[in-house]
Structure formats: structure tokens, C-alpha cells
Amino acid sequence: MTDWFPLALGMDVPSETAAPARLYGKEIALWRGADGQVHAWEDRCPHRGMRLSFGFVRNGNLACLYHGWQFGADATCRHIPAHPELRVPGTIHAHAYRAEERAGIIWVSLNEDASLDELPDEDAFGARSILVQAPLASVRVALALPEEGWKWQEDCLVAAHEPEPGLTMLHMASATLANRLDIAARAKTTRDHLEALNEKVPA
């Protein structure tokens, strides 16, 4: 069973920004530091439960929008603005998952022991993450994707995840930079086709 889920295109989480993602309803904050490293954390500040993806990146830390608690790349709390003198104990930390960027896509694993061998090791360029209003299982069947994981279809890497039941995010990356527009167009055609198919399926 694969442990890695494609949650976003790398280009959709630019340097020093945070972005929300969901996996089967589980809320995950993706963010990228100035060093280019991508992180995936539970989307919840350990202080008051605010979504960390609403936060902002400062000095290599992700700061919660609510009270400004700052968390470093290792997920431990580095600074509490209301108590600037406090040496923050290492016990205060966000919940981090594993995140890897491969083939233009950000892959996240909730399993700490997941093997990197499951991920593509070719280069690719993100073209489009597109919402398809259809369940992941039917998208996989219609696109002849394996039951799990991703697939190269000619010059296009296709991967998908389910943010919530009944909705699929289809991620497509191109083997060449020049082909991204073609692949983005293919993504739209695919979506329209899949949604039309899905509407025909009786509920």
C-alpha cells in the first residue's frame, strides 16, 4: 500500500507562503520556507486550534495568524509574542508529517516510515491541479490509473488525491516545460469528461 499522497503542485506553494490542503477530510497545512524546503503539518495550531495554513512565513518560521506563535522548520515552537522573554519549551510543537517534492508535485505521507522508492524520480514541471467533482475511485477507473499511486501517461505524470469524499484533485505534471499548456488543456478536457460521466452514474 502506498503511503504517499500528492497534495499540490510545488508551484502552488511559493516560497515563504502557506497553503491549505485536505486528505480524506484531514486538514493539512503546506508551507515553504525561504530555503525552498516544503513542510506538511496538521493544519492546527497547538495553542488554540487555529488553522496554520492561514498563517504567514517569517524568518524561516510559520507564524499562526491568531496569536503569532511561531514554529520552526522542525515544527517546534520558537517564539510566543505575548511572552517574548520566555524560553519556549520543546514540548510545544506542531504536528509534522513527511513531505517530499518530486516531479513538480508535493507528496505527503502520514506514515513516518514511508519509503521514498514509491515516488517518481524523474524531473517534471507542474501544469495543473484541477478539481474534479467525482469520487477518486471512479476517476482512477476512468483514467486507467493504478488503484494507488501515480502513472506516467506519455509525457504527462498523473496523480490524484481525495480532499473529501466525492471530490478529486487531479495533479498533472509535464515532462517538458514547453508542454505545460497542452497538458493543462488536457486536464480541463479530462475534468469535463469525468464530471459528465459522473453525472450519469445514478446516486
Binding site: D12, P14, T17, R22, L131, P163, L167, M169
Partner: peptide, 13 residues
């Protein structure tokens, strides 16, 4: 849910 719309998020930012 804005996690479904990355280009819109980028525009807002």
C-alpha cells in the same frame, strides 16, 4: 474550500 483552487489562492495573495 480554497484548497481546491490553487490559482485563485495565488491571485488573492
Amino acid at each position: 474550500p480554497l484548497d481546491l483552487y490553487p490559482a485563485i489562492r495565488n491571485f488573492i495573495r
